[in-house]
Write a protein that binds this DNA or RNA. Sequence first.
DNA 1: TTTT
DNA 2: TTTT
Lengths: 151, 151, 151, 151
Amino acid sequence: MSGVNKVILIGHLGKDPEVRHLDGNVSVASFPLATSESYNKDGKRIEQTEWHNIVMWRGLADVAAKYLQKGKLVYIEGKLRTRSFEDKEGHKKYSTEIVAENFTLLGRKTDFEPNNNSASSSTAAEPSAEANKNLGTGEFGKDEDERDLPF
Amino acid sequence: MSGVNKVILIGHLGKDPEVRHLDGNVSVASFPLATSESYNKDGKRIEQTEWHNIVMWRGLADVAAKYLQKGKLVYIEGKLRTRSFEDKEGHKKYSTEIVAENFTLLGRKTDFEPNNNSASSSTAAEPSAEANKNLGTGEFGKDEDERDLPF
Amino acid sequence: MSGVNKVILIGHLGKDPEVRHLDGNVSVASFPLATSESYNKDGKRIEQTEWHNIVMWRGLADVAAKYLQKGKLVYIEGKLRTRSFEDKEGHKKYSTEIVAENFTLLGRKTDFEPNNNSASSSTAAEPSAEANKNLGTGEFGKDEDERDLPF
Amino acid sequence: MSGVNKVILIGHLGKDPEVRHLDGNVSVASFPLATSESYNKDGKRIEQTEWHNIVMWRGLADVAAKYLQKGKLVYIEGKLRTRSFEDKEGHKKYSTEIVAENFTLLGRKTDFEPNNNSASSSTAAEPSAEANKNLGTGEFGKDEDERDLPF
DNA sequence: TTTT
DNA sequence: TTTT
């Protein structure tokens, strides 16, 4: 018997993805994602931010390492998983993570450049009055194919 | 700035909802929900169950108290919220909950009876070879209206 | 540039799936699905039914042919696709379909039997006061593996 | 009995919203939305665009008229509805629409300015190397409150 | 054309 | 702690 366990988030990365390599060359990327909600209370605009622990595996982790960076806006689809572990003092703790199944970059075209040339990319952007047309999305993780030029 | 924080679950209640009443007569219902996923590993069928802490507020909590019970199958839509608290020993802990925004009962018609007559409902059901036709869904929480006869 | 195009439905099949086999042995299954919404208007309970054209391809079509039948309750995840075509009189028409990516059977265990023994299944059910415990879900389409015993 | 009928889209507006006012001062906004999907076929990058007819009612239509414009990137949540009608020649036709329940603007902060000053906004943007920080989202339609300054 |  |  099976069920449904689905999470859909749109938010900004709080940090660059941290990538580890496990046995058998398996990649795991993880990073915090902030989703913000704003509402009115007593006439004031309140903004409430929720932080999520995102985890990506294998091919998806590799694309994340390449295209995701602190501050970027991203759509993530995944599932909830709660792990239990003991901290250094031996106390049992729980951590709930979102295991991502695919993601889509949201934002301007210039946000979709790979990370390695991050120094130059900030100057390469050259945004102009035309930048408005460059809004778009880059989708990852639906297929398992290698995609070096995903958009 | 706002984002998207959405969870969609289909699973079974692990316990009856526990309902508390806060100041100002605000109801809060909470219960664990199991979503199961099964997959093949080395030719064996593995079933993995994930447990979620569901929280419902106000009107939704009242309907939950009335219609949800341990074992029932339910569709839940909500958002993630992580609270931090200190346990009895003063250690900081985190708890991630799904704050439900609406739910839909899935299952047979006889599952949609209110909870108070649970003793009689088990006999009132009179399931037969025709029971197959009684599968259906009962939806809650989309409107804020009082719904004493929601289906 | 990519985007998000996602549909989530829970409803009943209006007919048995119709399966065709295209060139290269590609299977396509299609069937109508009803999702019902009920609300109060002027003190009366109104039920509004929406019909969706569901299409499933390849492996998913084969599992659909095996496990889905008129009347069954199912969770479907997919994407929207609008096709244009000319009817017999040469008038241009549009048809919007949901191309399913995975589905999960909702209902009692006895609903999860393959279709070929449909005659016997109606008597094999033997529902009792215990039948309540038999609610569950059977998930399909997440992996591309052959699954002859999917639950 | 009720079910689930949910659509989640992220895409660009193909035109400015067209707003009509029905009897009783009810607003209806409608516009086409493009969601694009790209995949590799025979080593070539194929981009396939799907067009959706979006409809928004009442308060949501008013916010749409104010903040949505041709080209903007938006997250939309809603439900499917298929209407039948007769064209001028008396032929029966079907139109499937997404009735939006809420939406969130995605893109740069400068995209979140109201529509009336569209001429100046293109110059007011003054994007810079810092523009990267201005990515964000503005959410609408969750509450029914008036929101003149929604972010 | 489903389901209640 | 559910369900199969």
